[in-house]
Write a protein that binds this DNA or RNA. Structure first.
Length: 265
DNA sequence: ATGGCCAATATCATTGGA
């Protein structure tokens, strides 16, 4: 089974690109971020026509996440616990029946946090703390869990083309990386890093300043796995070629292949 | 960080993104 995360940067503007990739890759579950639409605006029909169930947690204009899956989830929960007043749609959780038990998949869009001097950076750190507590509670279930999303975190210097440029950025500040490492400390595994030590593994290239042709990328989209999911991880890949398509998102899909099978219903 | 970006809004400019 293949499970992917992709910041689509506007699902309505990107529907042709999304369909082309779904047809090419045929993933079983896809976590989307920055759908930039309310639930009613999601181009649901086109995706359902390809055989996917669509779960959305949208928002007008910005943010918004969705989970596409080749089977219907048993349970879907909107929003990240820890702050019922948070108006931003950045988290969606789905539970699936697989052979041998349950598979829990979360689509998350972690706040960017720039500019660092603004209220946005404390919001990012507080959100990471909420994610930490959520992960802790779910890890206690000792089930396969995949926290898939745009983390807006460059974990290490070799996850970008030039760490010097990013040193004061909310994506790379020591405090940001420490919060990410604390997630790993809980027992979550960074799937791409678990399967490759290579440098130059990027998932985002800015639209500006020729970042794509110059390969000035960063790795900020991650599949974080509970031990029960990491045990079943077979391989990962980053569909970098999608960044070169017509009307690309500035992010590309990150895919994990797992030894899971949906339970027949 | 930036060589000249991109999406959404009810827009002809601003905001947010990374």
């Amino acid at each position: 089974m293949e499970i992917a995360t992709w910041n689509i940067n506007g699902v309505r503007a990107r529907i042709e690109t999304l369909i082309a990739w779904l047809k090419e890759a045929g993933p079983d579950i896809v976590c989307l971020q920055e759908i930039k639409t309310v639930d009613e605006g999601f181009p649901r029909g086109e995706i359902e026509a390809l055989g996917y169930h669509v779960a959305t947690h949208g928002q007008k204009g910005f943010n918004g996440v969705a989970i596409l899956s080749k089977t219907t989830p048993d349970e879907v929960t909107n929003g990240l616990a820890g702050d019922p007043e948070d108006p931003q749609s950045r988290f969606l959780e789905a539970v699936y029946s697989i052979e041998g038990g349950a598979l829990r998949v979360c689509a998350l869009y972690l706040p960017n946090g720039n500019p660092v001097g603004s209220e946005k950076y404390p919001y990012k750190l507080a959100w990471m703390e909420r994610l930490h507590r959520f992960a802790e509670s779910r890890l206690a279930l000792e089930e396969p869990l995949i926290l898939a999303g745009d983390y807006n975190v460059i974990p290490h210097g070799h996850d970008c083309w030039n760490p010097e440029v990013w040193k004061d950025d909310a994506l790379f500040l020591p405090q940001t990386r420490a919060a990410f490492q604390a997630l790993e400390g809980l027992g979550l595994t960074d799937a791409v890093r678990a399967t490759s030590d290579a440098t130059g593994l990027y998932t985002f290239w800015d639209y500006q300043a020729g970042a794509w042709p110059k390969n000035y990328g960063i790795r900020i989209d991650h599949l974080m796995l509970s031990p029960e999911a990491a045990d079943r991880l077979l391989e990962t890949r980053i569909d970098k070629h999608v960044r070169g398509w017509e009307k690309p998102s500035d992010h590309v899909p990150v895919i994990g292949r797992f030894d899971f099978r949906f339970r027949e219903r």
